[in-house]
Computed example of a mutant assay.
Amino acid sequence: MTPLLSAAVVFATGCLSLAILLNLFRLFRGPTAADRILALDTLVINAIAVIVLFGIAYATAAYFEAALLLAMVGFLGTVAYCKFLLRGDIVE
């Protein structure tokens, strides 16, 4: 890995760490359930970005497949939480 790419990965990891800390703050401190659902969805997106960074750093394709799977599961979880919040029931 080139020194410039290595520095970019380190910088991106620092930025994502800060974003995850702020998301955790909103998740635990959110005044409404909708705020907590949005924080959890954003936390999943940040976790996907961390997995992609690992894939770049270690130059393996397995991390990209894991990120894709987490994206699909995270989307379904967000839809289920929102449906529960709106209707009070997930399965009709």
Rank of each mutant, 00 (worst) to 15 (best):
M1W: 05
M1A: 11
M1R: 09
T2M: 02
P3C: 01
P3H: 02
L4Q: 05
L5K: 09
L5W: 00
L5H: 04
A7W: 02
A7H: 05
A7G: 02
A7T: 10
A8P: 00
A8Q: 07
A8S: 10
V9M: 10
V10N: 12
F11V: 10
F11L: 14
A12R: 07
C15R: 01
C15V: 10
C15I: 14
L16R: 03
S17Y: 05
A19V: 13
A19T: 13
I20F: 04
I20H: 00
L22T: 05
L22M: 14
N23S: 10
N23A: 12
N23E: 12
L24Q: 03
L24H: 04
L24T: 08
L24E: 05
F25H: 09
F25R: 07
F28Q: 02
R29H: 12
R29L: 09
R29K: 14
G30V: 08
P31R: 09
P31N: 07
P31A: 05
T32F: 06
T32A: 11
T32H: 11
A33H: 12
A34Q: 06
A34P: 00
R36V: 07
I37Q: 06
I37V: 15
I37C: 05
I37P: 08
L38E: 07
A39F: 04
A39M: 03
A39I: 00
A39K: 02
D41H: 12
T42Q: 10
L43T: 04
L43V: 04
V44W: 05
V44R: 01
N46R: 00
I48Y: 11
A49S: 14
A49W: 07
V50I: 15
V50K: 01
V52N: 03
L53F: 01
L53C: 14
G55S: 11
G55W: 07
G55T: 06
G55Q: 08
I56L: 15
A57T: 01
Y58I: 02
Y58G: 00
Y58T: 09
A59F: 04
T60Y: 01
T60L: 11
T60M: 12
A61V: 08
A62K: 05
Y63S: 08
F64S: 02
F64V: 08
F64P: 04
E65N: 06
A66G: 12
A66R: 04
A67H: 06
L69V: 14
A71P: 01
V73N: 02
V73I: 15
F75D: 15
L76H: 02
V79L: 15
A80F: 14
A80V: 11
A80E: 01
Y81C: 08
C82I: 09
K83Q: 06
F84Y: 15
L86H: 09
R87Q: 13
D89W: 06
D89N: 13
V91Y: 14
